[in-house]
């Protein structure tokens, strides 16, 4: 069957035809969790958290419950929010669909591992942003690589906001 109307063929890509695209909102913003893996990253996360976000939750540190220090279960990982309050990782991951880990050094390797494993288990997309000169953050890159589906190494702190905005966090 040969197409006879403009909208039934590939020529329907004009600016005029664009007006007929359905304009109903498709999804809400992502349920993003942003976690700083070290002190340097926490400074950045505090700054970024002050901007307007649709549903993102920001955490400036990762702790483990003292009695289970070497246990890698996500139930034992505690996240520190920007206001100082604490909550368990598994609670924060309920309903989340994006985990962004921020690092400036390799201090957070264990935390990245625990968070990455928990996200893999729950099918949550992971991304890692490493701030600094590449030759100075090689340890952080190696630590995060197994646990983040996407890694970006950047000198530009503004990339954190750019990525979160682009992903509708």
């Amino acid at each position: 069957m040969r197409p006879i109307l403009l909208n039934s063929c590939a020529e329907a890509t004009t600016a005029a035809e664009t007006r007929f695209r359905i304009d109903v909102p498709i999804t809400d913003g992502r349920a993003a969790r942003i976690v700083a893996l070290d002190e340097g990253a926490a400074v950045v996360v505090r700054r970024v958290a002050e901007q307007h976000w649709s549903g993102a939750r920001f955490f400036t540190g990762v702790d483990r419950t003292p009695q289970l220090n070497d246990n890698r279960e996500s139930t034992d990982v505690v996240l520190r929010a920007t206001d100082g309050s604490q909550s368990r990782l598994d609670e924060q991951l309920a309903g989340a669909d994006l985990m962004v880990m921020i690092a400036t050094a390799d201090d957070g390797a264990k935390a990245a591992s625990a968070i990455g494993d928990a996200c893999t288990l729950r099918g949550i997309m992971t991304a890692g942003l490493i701030l600094g000169e590449r030759r100075e953050v090689g340890g952080a890159v190696s630590a995060l690589r197994p646990h983040a589906r996407v890694l970006m190494v950047t000198k530009d702190e503004q990339d954190v906001s750019e990525v979160l905005t682009a992903l509708r966090a």
């Binding site: 994006l98 991304a127 970006m152 990525v163």
Partner: peptide, 24 residues
Amino acid sequence: MGPIVDRTRERLVSADVGIIKARH
């Protein structure tokens, strides 16, 4: 996509981070 895709409506995923960085 049309002559100029409407990027206000797109739903990027983390695999698009190269595109995000390039735009920036």
